[in-house]
Amino acid sequence: MRRALILLLLLLAPLSALALSSPADMLPDPAQEERARALGREIRCMVCQNQSIEDSEVGLARDLRLLVRERIAAGASDAEVKSFLHARYGDFVLLRPPFAWNTLILWATPVLALLGGFGLIWLSRRKAVQPTPPAPLTAEEQRRLAELERVGGGTQA
């Protein structure tokens, strides 16, 4: 029981590490801080690449967190903060990439996969509904059929 409890605590430990912004870095206005967090979760940490700047402990992520807060405190809109970072780090910094010709396949993939799935279902159902008709009987089989129908049954020889 105690071991299970310790194991559970160990498993939960990484979760507590997610809230990273140190209190000193937070904005005094809770609404602005909330906006900064929501925005930060959409900005990729360029160093760890699969984390947002709100999740990462890397120095650059902290610098960018502070930068986002500084801009928001100065009255910038979410879109302005994003375009500020986009101008410096490109599409890659946005965890939700913009819709453009070079990201078309990326955005279209779920739709294409869904259509492909429907296509497969349609194909397999069409096959199931229309079983191929049996091949016509040969002359030999016709004769045997007439025989079977005349006798109407049989026993093992």
Partner: peptide, 13 residues
């Protein structure tokens, strides 16, 4: 030292 100009250049390491 603050690394702010580096951010303007898009430096990430």
């Amino acid at each position: 030292v603050p690394g702010r100009v580096a951010i303007d250049w898009g430096v990430y390491g």
